[in-house]
Design a binder for these strands. Structure first.
Lengths: 121, 121
DNA sequence: GTAAGTAGTATACAAAAGGATAGTGAGAAA
DNA sequence: TTTCTCACTATCCTTTTGTATACTACTTAC
């Protein structure tokens, strides 16, 4: 164990120092659906079925599950209006909005990646 | 189907236009290990067992599998030196380095997230 | 009276991701 | 001579993720 440190005294600490926060972020954002849902809410508050329409391919079960997780991480807020019929509105919290820059960076990379794939394949 | 467009003519197109590239990016970077492995290689070329030591918790099986996927996506390069014993070196391709900004953004958010969690909990 | 929209839940299942453990075959070090 | 390192592979297992389908209870529109 000491051997690693001796061989790469600089790298080892720097490396885990970078890995751990990225891992924290991944834990909250992991999976196929959380970021797409957040993106959909970045364009305005939405009701359950509206999100379901805007996130291509998601099922009710997944949407319900992911919204619950996002809510418990304080990224999304759920508001119930007791009108008739009852309406439930989802919105991004301020904290949720702090992901905007992450999403923008990821989207830019994704655009470049798609371009590249089309050239190669 | 037309109804959705009528209700949110602006949102619908903008929204999927953002979701699709993010989804492309997620497909290549998905899972618990790919970004940590890339981070470890951002700090220099490494051999298999060195990466295994620097990415906390990864098993040989996962490392092997993820490296193969990263290689097939042209993010990582595998070089075999036929010395004795044989040495295999992994490095980031130029394309792999294009993820640096994505990782930096994600890491910054992760640092803030960890701080926030410690205050709340 | 039947369908559609409201926001989901229940159940069953399949597929993918990840973990634990062991083994390979070579050289090199004790 | 037994162990160690190197770069993996193989097998089995559990957990997570995702899909499909059906269902609730209420209201409005046709």
């Amino acid at each position: 164990m000491e051997k690693t440190k001796e061989k790469n005294p600089h790298t080892w600490g720097e490396c885990t120092k970078s890995i751990l926060p990225v891992r924290d972020a991944l834990e909250v954002l992991s999976g196929k659906w959380k970021l797409p849902i957040i993106i959909s809410l970045m364009f305005g508050n939405k009701r359950f079925s509206q999100i379901a329409k805007e996130v291509p391919g998601i099922t009710d079960k997944m949407l319900s599950k992911e919204l619950r997780e996002l809510e418990s991480n304080d990224l999304v807020k759920r508001t119930v209006y007791d009108s008739i019929p009852v309406v439930v509105e989802y919105s991004l919290t301020e904290y949720g909005h702090s992901l905007e820059i992450v999403i923008k960076t990821l989207r830019d990379w994704g655009v470049a990646h798609r371009k590249r794939m089309m050239v190669v394949e």
